[in-house]
């Protein structure tokens, strides 16, 4: 496991005061919070920042971290010395069960969690298991046809001795037809097991779509940019168009302009009330690199009174 330099992650000196640490965390948290910053990598950065703050904001954990981490550099192979934590009792600041911190963190501070779980398990007490959350990435055709995906879930579970352990499990999940980006699939009883015979929690899968080079999805409507020749747009007629549910013949109205939207009703995502598919015409220009093409362009120049910059007044 790699040593993590929590001071470096927060961008503060090892001698930083509690106020400096708080200020540095708050600024970085605002900038990188995955609910605010949709950039790739923000979530991973935020996790590191939150983990660093979890340790450095707590005087007991910070002292323990300072003592054990002396002389290590970030990324260096790390192994806590045997019995290193015997002098420490972590009283507060126990991260929630849902928090997913690094192995490095778990090796140093995981003990506090186990103690709590044991206490909870030994008492005569019933509690419904926690809900779990995960993201699942699917492709647009999966939403049109339905699909099955194998996903790996990582979560804390109680073992037979009442100890909390992180474990991975694989499950197959059926992706229902008609699911939209941002929607959730709810799987009853697939969250944490309940305590004292109470029901298990649920698992919520938040659905995201992998980017698709041809289509973009907004809610349950789907957009496609369809290249057409200038004469197809001008004269109208039938052209072939791909759609997520197969190729269709599309009638282009005569005198269509660049960017004209043609709506194919009900051919968006097949939800309970299906979305629409919008085909957006993109006029493609034939290259003028042959004498014949140049002759035709010249003829158009001479015979069509066309000024594309009329609206700009020149």
């Amino acid at each position: 496991m790699e040593y993590k330099d929590y001071y470096k992650i927060l961008g503060v000196e090892r001698s930083a005061s509690a106020d400096d640490i708080k200020a540095a965390y708050r600024k970085l948290a605002r900038q990188n919070h995955p609910d605010i910053n949709k950039e790739k990598g923000a979530e991973a950065r935020f996790k590191e920042i939150a983990e660093a703050y979890e340790v450095l904001k707590d005087p007991e954990k910070r002292a323990a971290y300072d003592q054990v981490g002396q002389g290590f550099r970030p990324g260096q192979e790390f192994r806590p010395p045997p019995g290193w934590d015997s002098g420490f009792e972590f009283s507060g600041g126990d991260p929630g069960e849902g928090q997913d911190f690094s192995d490095f963190f778990e090796s140093l501070f995981g003990r506090a969690r186990q103690g709590r779980a044991r206490r909870a398990g030994s008492a005569e007490f019933r509690a419904r298991g926690q809900d779990h959350h995960a993201k699942i990435f699917i492709d647009l055709p999966d939403s049109y046809q339905g699909a099955t995906r194998i996903i790996t879930l990582r979560g804390a579970e109680l073992d037979e001795n009442g100890q909390v352990r992180m474990r991975e499990r694989q499950v197959s999940v059926s992706i229902p037809k008609g699911v939209q980006p941002g929607q959730m699939i709810r799987l009853s009883g697939q969250g944490s097991p309940g305590i004292g015979g109470a029901a298990a929690g649920d698992l919520y899968l938040e659905v995201e779509f992998n980017p698709n080079s041809a289509y973009r999805v907004e809610g349950k409507d789907v957009y496609l940019d369809l290249p057409v020749a200038p004469w197809e747009a001008a004269l109208g007629g039938k052209v072939k168009s791909p759609t997520p549910s197969g190729v269709v013949d599309l009638t282009i109205p005569a005198n269509s302009g660049q960017g004209r939207k043609l709506r194919l009703k009900g051919r968006g995502i097949p939800a309970r009330e299906p979305g629409d598919l919008y085909v957006v015409l993109q006029i493609a220009l034939p290259p003028g690199n042959t004498p014949e093409a140049q002759r035709i362009y010249r003829e158009m120049e001479q015979k069509l009174a066309f000024n594309p910059r009329q609206s700009l007044g020149v």
Partner: peptide
């Protein structure tokens, strides 16, 4: 819970209805 590799879990979509 046991390995559920072969079982296919079916949930429902939390939609606008």
């Amino acid at each position: 819970m046991a390995e559920t590799k072969h079982e296919i879990l079916t949930g429902w979509v939390v939609d606008e209805f």
